[in-house]
Computed example of a mutant assay.
Amino acid sequence: MSQRVGVIGGGQLAWMMGQEAQKLGVSFWVQAAHSDDPAVSIAENSIIAPLSDLEATAQLAENCDVITFENEFIDQSGLSRLRDRVAFRPSLASLAPLLDKYEQRCYLQELGLPVPAFKTVIAGETEFPVEELPVVAKVRRHGYDGQGTFIIPDQWSLDQVWETLKGEQVLLENFIPFESELAIMAARGVNGETVTYPVVETYQRHQVCQRVIVPARISETLEAEIRAIAQTILSALDWVGIFGIELFLTEDHHILVNEIAPRTHNSGHYTLDACDVSQFAMHLKAVTGETLTAPQMQAKAAVMVNLLGYESTENQYLDKRQQLSSLPNTYVYWYGKTQARPGRKLGHVTVLGESIAQASAIADQVSEIWYPHDDN
């Protein structure tokens, strides 16, 4: 594998992809917004420029065979002018239905997939009956890590959110009283082959993922249904690369598709240590045209804990990281960010175990070390 792969984005997802690129012998380039972005330290070459800088992306295209993406916040029409110079994988056409949350939800519905009831409104200008509460409001573009997502239980909360988002187009959906939140990573190759990873359970705090448990404690029937959903979307989009799908398991044991993350995803970080092919390596294999083979778990269970910021400070947390590294069957990833703030992803820890109970017990120690006791 000797291709040159460029990534638009220099954050931790690109950093982890860069580590896998080194193992695979891929020449790895990034267009990063800042010189201290995590992936800059590991890339073979870096172009430091705003991610919206099309001249910088053109330079990336001149030096790479393939360009892929760390996030979905892209200028699709601008990038389309570069399609004759470089292969975008996934293609811009594949990304198009997914960039706007409302349009994505419409697309999933058109595919016949089960989704929560939804509509689009303009915040502050559209009234709806209070008896429809609770609801969830999501900004249609550029929301991530809980930013731009609001759970609205009552009229007071609605007034606050409407003031915050006033004038913005918003996806409004029914609040789902779920039994659990699930996710799956799935990939498709240039030749159309599809592979899926195990379904995982995800646990959120303030709409940010804090813990992932694999394998999900669901029936084989539900697992098969989720894998089939993933394969349907991959094929319909003519996707090349990997993506994550977030889902709800309702209280009456039905699956609803929440949303698609069209890239590597937090719910797949466990694959770096628990699988023979990580999500990042699988993505690189897909975009460089290799034939994909189904990934295999190398542990019976795994738990991933996000190291989220809980204060605004400059701190490398060396003492806590040393304590984490001393735990058994534990793998610590630190993203090298210099600024901590509440909810910011600073790193993650994966724990492998013979059972979910065993891995979860060590994961509980991770949380006790990392988070202040009054903040768990």
Rank of each mutant, 00 (worst) to 15 (best):
residue 307 L to G: 05
residue 244 G to N: 03
residue 21 A to H: 00
residue 321 R to A: 12
residue 270 Y to F: 13
residue 335 Y to R: 09
residue 278 S to E: 05
residue 67 I to P: 09
residue 112 G to R: 11
residue 117 A to W: 01
residue 171 L to E: 11
residue 373 H to I: 10
residue 188 R to E: 07
residue 303 V to G: 13
residue 237 L to G: 10
residue 15 W to R: 03
residue 287 V to R: 08
residue 309 G to R: 08
residue 95 L to M: 15
residue 199 V to T: 07
residue 376 N to S: 14
residue 234 L to T: 12
residue 225 E to H: 08
residue 282 M to P: 06
residue 232 T to F: 03
residue 250 T to R: 09
residue 190 V to M: 14
residue 109 Q to A: 15
residue 261 A to F: 01
residue 28 F to N: 10
residue 4 R to Q: 05
residue 363 A to P: 08
residue 348 H to D: 08
residue 38 P to W: 02
residue 242 I to P: 04
residue 202 T to G: 07
residue 105 R to Q: 14
residue 352 L to Y: 00
residue 298 Q to L: 15
residue 225 E to V: 03
residue 194 T to P: 04
residue 324 L to F: 05
residue 211 R to W: 02
residue 143 G to I: 05
residue 363 A to V: 09
residue 313 T to Y: 08
residue 370 W to A: 09
residue 283 H to I: 01
residue 335 Y to W: 01
residue 124 G to H: 03
residue 262 P to Y: 03
residue 374 D to H: 14
residue 168 E to F: 04
residue 140 R to A: 07
residue 273 D to P: 04
residue 108 L to T: 04
residue 189 G to Q: 12
residue 339 Q to R: 15
residue 207 Q to C: 13
residue 293 T to Q: 14
residue 100 D to H: 13
residue 11 G to L: 02
residue 200 V to D: 09
residue 150 F to M: 07
residue 372 P to I: 03
residue 8 I to A: 02
residue 148 G to S: 00
residue 248 F to K: 06
residue 229 I to R: 12
residue 126 T to F: 04
residue 14 A to Y: 06
residue 323 Q to T: 08
residue 297 M to E: 09
residue 286 A to W: 00
residue 66 V to E: 09
residue 132 E to T: 07
residue 218 I to E: 03
residue 269 H to D: 03
residue 114 P to M: 09
residue 373 H to L: 13
residue 62 E to I: 03
residue 63 N to L: 12
residue 252 D to I: 09
residue 256 L to I: 07
residue 241 G to F: 01
residue 292 L to M: 08
residue 349 V to K: 02
residue 61 A to M: 14
residue 258 N to L: 12
residue 19 Q to Y: 02
residue 375 D to P: 03
residue 111 L to M: 05
residue 331 Y to W: 02
residue 68 T to G: 04
residue 203 Y to S: 13
residue 346 L to A: 11
residue 340 A to K: 03
residue 112 G to C: 12
residue 126 T to G: 04
residue 226 I to M: 14
residue 78 G to T: 06
residue 70 E to I: 05
residue 201 E to Q: 15
residue 23 K to A: 14
residue 134 P to R: 04
residue 163 E to S: 12
residue 13 L to V: 05
residue 196 T to Q: 09
residue 26 V to S: 07
residue 5 V to A: 09
residue 305 V to I: 13
residue 159 D to I: 03
residue 238 D to K: 14
residue 313 T to E: 06
residue 174 N to V: 12
residue 137 A to P: 04
residue 189 G to L: 09
